[in-house]
Write a protein that binds this DNA or RNA. Structure first.
Lengths: 262, 262
DNA sequence: CGCCAACTTGATGGCTGTCAAGTCAGGTGG
DNA sequence: CCACCTGACTTGACAGCCATCAAGTTGGCG
């Protein structure tokens, strides 16, 4: 399944070969679960994490779970059990309001972590659903408690990951609050490119895993606006789009539009 | 100074009498600093925090700092030293982008906490400035480390506060991404009312501490739009506004506009 | 082959931004 | 005490960006 997904998305073939992983066996060995053996480690763990601390982090990951396209990792209102670190696949998080509005708050890929919204009152407030088959490592908070009292480095790790999430959301708030549609879309494309690059995929040619509507929801725009801007960017020679396949052509111009450095 | 501020803002007189506090003496006793003696405790600490854990939390607060109107608590780029719990005063947090855009991400009042944006890379990414004279308790992260290895309840506390911040930001993203101007403004007014109420102030009559421009920045709107909507809400009998004094008249209608329950 | 979701593109309208001209309130100095 | 000044606010006129509505087109899949 994982391989099939990659085949359907030729431009996203990894340029770095990642360790292949056994499929959802009911009981995985501690070594197999270990973060220190995980190809996605560099994504999960903030830079600067010491190697000595990795074995401590390994102790938290208790299980791995296979999630199919369309299946929820968790839903708003579910009791909080812990956080999820994605190993493969592609996911979206979204919130729903009382009156039925919906808003995509993030797209998760390998190495990203979800679930911090559930800590405060013991229930998740968001929904996370797979856009593509994948696997999630489960880190239950019961584990966190027992391990982290013995291990000071561990809480540091979690503080940093949560801090990163807070900063990420602040960036999105600025995008939603101050940027025009074309800047939002340019920013979105470049952000995806960076994230693919960080995982060893091409940063200039990749496949979108989400619909125009989901992009629009994420960026506070309508799907028609996304479609129109993709077309316009293509006319202007910034990108090439065909369906969900995107190729970045004029990176400086995209950065310019997104309001980044130069 | 604190009293003077309240005198200038008659509708905000507390309906609950709060303990008076000695002014910024250079060295405060541990008992004076203690959270367990603080009138704002119910705001800082998430509900459900056990009393036994309070003494542990007390150990983290190392100093208290007086901040005058217009003075920064910290700025983007400053080295991270810890988090700040506000005791009195009124503050705003804002982010600045490379190309000069600015966006207000939150307004802080007594019991709120700032500074989590600085954990990840060791530098704050936001700016926090006082809109009104106040005091901030400083919780250095050096303290957190040494205390929390002895005390498991402490990290729980911080996880919950950070989780609350993440959920808060997700709510704001939905507001910025899906709500129309009138809904944003109604939501803003009601949110302020709730927060004043939680601190023992009137929830139907209070003074804004920020300019129309700051409200606009927070809500992703222009100051003229804020002004116009305040005027319109007044014409429609939802509120009464005079300058920064606001009185909520038709709460059901405001909730309706904000898209909340009924 | 036909269906359906996803996507594209056009026409139109409205919400909100922009520009502009005041008004108001608080603070300062004469 | 009053004139003046400045920042904050209000209000009007207009424009433009993006949403809305509508009608196709495409591509994947049964």
């Amino acid at each position: 399944m994982q391989a099939a997904v990659l085949e359907k998305a030729p431009p996203n073939r990894p340029t770095v070969v990642l360790r292949s992983v056994p499929r959802s066996s009911p009981q995985l060995s501690r070594a197999t679960l270990a973060c220190s053996n995980c190809g996605m480690r560099s994504q999960c763990v903030p830079s600067g994490m010491r190697n000595e601390d990795m074995s401590e982090i390994d102790q938290m990951v208790t299980s791995r779970r296979r999630i199919r396209r369309g299946e929820h990792v968790y839903r708003a209102g579910d009791p909080f059990i812990g956080i999820f670190a994605f190993r493969t696949g592609f996911f979206k998080s979204y919130a729903e309001s009382e009156d039925g509005r919906t808003h995509v708050t993030s797209f998760e890929m390998a190495g990203d972590i979800s679930g911090f919204d559930g800590i405060e009152d013991g229930h998740y407030t968001q929904n996370v659903i797979a856009l593509e088959d994948g696997e999630a490592c489960t880190i239950t908070f019961a584990q966190v408690d027992s391990v982290s009292t013995r291990v000071p480095g561990l809480q540091h790790y979690l503080f940093r990951v949560m801090s990163r999430e807070i900063v990420r959301e602040q960036g999105l708030m600025m995008l939603l609050g101050t940027m025009r549609a074309e800047a939002r879309v340019a920013h979105f494309i470049l952000d995806l490119a960076r994230r693919f690059a960080a995982r060893g995929y091409s940063s200039t040619e990749f496949n979108l895993r989400m619909t125009r509507e989901e992009i629009g929801s994420y960026l506070g725009l309508k799907l028609e606006t996304i479609s129109r801007l993709f077309s316009r960017f293509q006319d202007e020679g910034l990108i090439e789009v065909q369906g969900r396949a995107i190729k970045l052509v004029d990176l400086p111009a995209l950065h310019e539009l997104a309001g980044e450095h130069a």
